[in-house]
């Protein structure tokens, strides 16, 4: 049998302790154990970006990451953006306003990447160029939109903040 391992972490602002199998993938832990279904599974091989979440400020593919590695870390999923008072983050508002959503399956991941990149830009006090914005979204596949509206939405976030 597996040895269960205890992990302590913060997820979407709440401290949590869980016992897990060491081989558990983070995306399965998030979706199946924590029931946070907003994180999507598109390929399970780090190609599509649908499962992107933020760990300590960095956007990662949660299908390529073992859950035990979140021990001691701060995890944010799509459910962790926005607040009760203000349910939509700026990134989410811009995605809606720019028509960046069609089927929406890639959207959670795109939002998380844009959120992480926007925080990084804010800290560095810079507005990225359109090419840098495109590059930041390179890890996401979307079959509906042709990316242009996603890029437009992300650019609008960087200009606003």
């Amino acid at each position: 049998m597996y040895n269960m391992v205890e992990i302590n972490f913060i997820i979407n602002g709440s401290k949590m302790t869980k016992r897990i199998k060491p081989s558990t993938l983070l995306v399965d832990f998030i979706r199946d154990d924590l029931k946070l279904k907003g994180t999507k599974v598109g390929c399970m091989e780090g190609e599509c970006g649908a499962c992107t979440i933020i760990i300590d400020g960095t956007a990662i593919n949660s299908c390529m990451y073992l859950a035990i590695n979140i021990n001691g870390k701060n995890v944010t999923t799509i459910e962790g953006l926005g607040t009760v008072e203000k349910p939509l983050d700026l990134v989410q508002e811009k995605m809606i306003a720019h028509g960046a959503i069609q089927c929406g399956f890639c959207t959670s991941g795109v939002v998380m990447t844009t959120k992480a990149f926007s925080e990084k830009c804010k800290n560095e006090d810079k507005i990225p160029t359109r090419d840098e914005v495109k590059k930041s979204l390179e890890g996401h596949l979307c079959r509906c939109t042709g990316y242009i509206k996603i890029i437009d939405a992300a650019e609008a976030v960087y200009k606003k903040q």
């Binding site: 279904k37 907003g38 999507k40 799509i78 939509l88 809606i96 959503i101 929406g104 959207t107």
Partner: peptide, 19 residues
């Protein structure tokens, strides 16, 4: 131009897909 009715659900991860 009118944003999609379901856009808020999509963008917050609340939409329930088959998966």
């Amino acid at each position: 131009s009118t944003p999609k009715l379901d856009a808020k659900e999509r963008v917050t991860g609340k939409s329930v897909y088959g998966h």
